[in-house]
Simulated assay, not measured.
Amino acid sequence: MHLETIDFYNQNAEELTARYLRADRSELQRILRQWIPLGGSVLEIGCGCGLDAVFMASIADKVTATDASDEMLHQAKRIIEKHGMSHSILFKRAVFPLEPENPLLKEQFDVIVCIATLMHIPDNELFDFAYQIRSMLKNQGIFICSFPADGGQSHDDQRLYVDREPAEISLLFERLRFHLLKNEKSQDGLGRAINWTTSIFCSGGD
């Protein structure tokens, strides 16, 4: 992952958390509720302020919430403690793509969720990132990812933003024996001039 992007989240974690807490999450929660199986296991890549992990923990038995930013993890832990969900969510700092020795690579999940994180993955790391997702998903597992649909994301700070088309993401994961189940379009939960695509994939067998 882009190091300057991680630095940005570390330096602005409190301000960003206050902003994310104001977001309308109803559309995302509808999608998560539809695709996360009751009692399943979930890996969240880029947990941010932790509210999505709280929601997913109300459905799944096990939620592993990861982020590359230590300060965002600190904010997420604070939010999750406030909601009384600390016992349901396991936090891990993780920079994707993971180093080969990372123990997460030995785990298997029913669902992997990656909300507003794909645009921070450099092109030269994207295939390794996708391959690791495949290795951590159970057969017939679900991968949910969201990304700006039309290049509308702001580029006014040092974070990396890579504009990617839905067809590009679909082709990448189909090469790894994923099947695209659905593309969902939605407006930005903070009212910004950004349209989002949420792609839902199912992992296939070997």
Rank of each mutant, 00 (worst) to 15 (best):
H2W: 02
L3I: 13
T5I: 08
T5D: 08
I6H: 01
D7E: 14
Y9I: 00
Q11Y: 09
N12A: 12
N12C: 06
E14F: 09
E15P: 05
Y20E: 07
Y20R: 07
A23Q: 07
D24A: 08
S26D: 02
E27S: 04
E27I: 08
Q29Y: 06
I31M: 11
I31L: 13
I31Y: 03
R33P: 00
R33E: 07
S41R: 11
C47H: 02
G48F: 07
G48S: 06
G50L: 01
G50K: 03
L51N: 08
L51V: 12
M56K: 05
A60K: 00
D61L: 08
K62L: 00
A65G: 06
T66M: 07
D67R: 05
A68G: 15
D70S: 14
L73C: 09
L73I: 15
A76P: 05
A76Q: 03
R78G: 04
I79D: 01
I80K: 01
I80L: 04
H83D: 09
H83S: 05
M85W: 07
M85G: 01
M85L: 08
H87Q: 13
S88P: 00
I89G: 03
I89H: 01
F91W: 01
R93P: 00
A94T: 04
V95E: 12
P97R: 05
L98E: 12
L98Y: 05
P100N: 12
N102M: 03
N102W: 04
L104M: 12
L104H: 08
K106P: 00
Q108C: 01
Q108Y: 13
V113Y: 01
V113G: 01
I115H: 06
A116T: 05
A116I: 10
A116P: 08
M119D: 03
H120W: 08
P122K: 06
E125R: 15
E125D: 15
E125F: 13
L126I: 14
F127D: 10
Q132G: 12
M136L: 07
L137D: 03
G141R: 00
I142M: 10
I142P: 03
F143L: 11
C145E: 09
F147N: 02
F147I: 07
F147P: 00
D150P: 03
S154T: 10
S154D: 15
D157C: 14
D157I: 10
L160Y: 04
V162N: 09
V162P: 04
E165R: 15
E165P: 00
P166Q: 06
P166T: 02
A167K: 04
I169C: 02
S170I: 11
S170L: 02
L171C: 06
L172W: 07
F173L: 11
E174M: 07
E174Q: 15
R175P: 01
L176H: 14
F178E: 04
H179E: 15
L181C: 05
N183E: 09
S186F: 12
Q187C: 11
Q187E: 12
Q187N: 12
Q187D: 14
G189Y: 08
L190G: 03
G191C: 09
R192S: 04
R192N: 14
I194T: 10
I194P: 03
I194A: 04
I200V: 15
I200T: 09
S203D: 04
G205I: 13
D206K: 15
